[in-house]
Design a protein around this nucleic acid. Structure first.
Lengths: 341, 341
DNA sequence: ACATTTCTGAGGTACGTACCTCAAAGACTT
DNA sequence: AAGTCTTTGAGGTACGTACCTCAGAAATGT
């Protein structure tokens, strides 16, 4: 049978109260006694019974996801994953709340963050474009005792908080490699479309993409990033303009998570079967485009994994536990038609 | 505050004892009463406190992994993942045992399975080549009250047991598509190397591969499968023979999980940079070959995910719970150098 | 109306840990 | 040696569920 605190007390030659003080880091125990208890823990292989601890603590974990407010299909998928997993979380006394934050408004994000404190929430997963204000507000939130993970796009600088997401430089490089290999020896231009190049993740993807193309594929010319600002009209306009200006576009890399509008514009204006088109994130739209051959590959991260990973990390932080590192590594997935499931 | 069984009893207008009978499926409750309790559960949103339940039950879950005994690096990785996750499992009162089963010996596997019963183990994850004997033994094991999942390669036929692994047909098709796209318009032969073509997974991969090559790449000829029988000497011999017999080999697909020996043979005999080489499973060897450019792509399934998924499913089965389906879907991953983490 | 069976209630103990109080032992200071 | 401060022990209650017993109520059959 698994040893209990009682066994531990006996093994360490101390009382239950002292064992309790050591286990829960309470004051008033001599260093020598603490060490004796720790040695006994090693010796008898004591492992805290989490069920009993949770029950005794009667503690719940309150988490919040702060997500941009946008019609983005990828975001909708994220939210769906959170909602789907919610009942499973509640089973473990984890209550997850989703809050919309205005997109691209550091001021509003900051005010939301400032309103949070450890009385109302134990952990927060933040998905926000980088900005000094957001970063500072995050720091202060951490100082107020709230655990934080950064989701998908991290804030720059020294990180006291965990990051949950893929390495965007690597993701861009992956896209670049596939573009180069799928195009073979063909010579021409590659269109690069982004919602905005102000976001850290877009910049990193672009850098990774360019590095591969520049180094290994002299036959390809990656055009300057064109920004849609999330506007389908504008997307269509810049795509039309691009295909008018360049007469040998043989590839297209859409590096933001909302691929639908740019893809539809490209499909409407050019012959997609002559081009290699690569986008990001698995959504209903990108899946459909993969299946009908419009898209050649999708670089994706699993939203369900992102959500569960963020929750696991926050919970572990709240309870002072460690996580299985390999389980929290978000993979940069390559999707083609054949491996959709 | 979260409602407890006491609240539930009050809401349903019955006693705690009756609530307990309903919740744990004990006999001696009228149908009408059961329904009243279930309605009250819905109404007040009662969720069983798992911590308390586990504590009260004081029940542990004993699981066993039955794995082939082989020097296979992929298997070693699997075992490493099990061992690494073990302490995290023990935290949740799950005890995992790993047992070696002789490879390719249905008789021995069957005798091991026959020796198992619900007194010594609650759930078993089996990884074994298909055979009628193993299948029957599995069925009998299930009848003795032991939960079973089939790992990586499932037994054919009607499945009362869960399967944890990828769709090998899809995996083969994925390899075929990448082979075709990476080779572009080049014309030539593609070598296909397998440890054995008796295993279900190998056959399925081959079928998926051929379907894509045959339908979409008339410029490519997939050669008949060559079997190494796990013998490096033999691997070298058949590879040498292949490159002597065919003078225009431009691709190589290694479809079994042990890619090292065939890869080394191919690298020693031919010029790998002129060929597209695709293998399965992420191991130290395939990672190194991806990094040095020998391998062009790897089709993989995450061993850590396999292990955790098998354990989660078995545990849920033991406790009569459901799992989050999407979490247990093992992805067919495409790995190139750029997305190795 | 009776006996019999089925159903329900009341009450208890147990699981292992957290957290509390109070007393007492020990260490240290002057 | 007396006083103060630190450390330890003993004992308690609480968390929410599982599982047990036994008595009594309700439904069923004759």
């Amino acid at each position: 049978m698994r040893p209990t605190t009682k066994d531990l007390a006996k093994a360490a030659g101390v009382s239950l109260a002292t064992v309790d003080r050591v286990l829960n880091g309470r004051p008033g125990v001599r260093r020598a006694t603490i060490e004796a208890v720790n040695e006994a823990i090693e010796k008898i292989g004591f492992v805290r019974n989490i069920s009993a601890a949770n029950l005794a603590r009667n503690r719940i974990v309150r988490l919040a996801f702060l997500l941009p407010k946008s019609g983005d299909e990828f975001l909708a998928t994220m939210i769906r994953n959170i909602v789907e997993a919610r009942s499973a979380f509640e089973t473990e006394s984890i209550y997850v709340d989703v809050r919309d934050v205005l997109e691209n408004d550091p001021h509003q994000i900051t005010s939301v963050l400032s309103a949070l404190n450890s009385d109302s929430v134990d952990g927060v997963a933040i998905m926000a474009a980088e900005s000094p204000q957001v970063r500072d507000a995050t720091m202060r939130l951490v100082e107020r005792g709230v655990h934080v993970v950064e989701l998908i796009s991290g804030q720059p600088g020294a990180h006291p908080t965990a990051f949950v997401g893929i390495d965007n430089n690597r993701a861009g490089a992956t896209a670049g490699r596939l573009m180069g290999r799928f195009l073979g020896h063909r010579t021409g231009e590659v269109l690069v479309i982004s919602e905005t190049m102000n976001a850290r993740d877009s910049i990193e993807r672009r850098l990774g993409f360019d590095e591969v193309i520049t180094n290994d594929y002299p036959n390809l010319t990656a055009l300057p990033s064109m920004e849609t600002y999330g506007d389908p009209e504008r997307a269509r306009a810049i795509v039309e303009n691009a295909y008018r200006s360049f007469d040998n576009i043989i590839g297209c890399y859409i590096l933001s998570s909302e691929a639908r509008a740019p893809l539809e514009a490209v499909a409407a204006i050019s012959n997609v079967s002559d081009q290699v088109i690569i986008a990001h994130e698995r959504t209903r739209a990108t899946e459909a485009f993969l299946r009908d051959g419009t898209l050649d590959a999708v670089i994706a991260q699993d939203p369900g994994h992102l959500v569960r990973s963020a929750v696991r990390i926050l919970r572990a932080n709240c309870e002072g536990r460690k996580t299985i590192a390999s389980q929290e590594q978000i993979r940069t997935e390559i999707l083609i038609e054949e491996n959709l499931n």
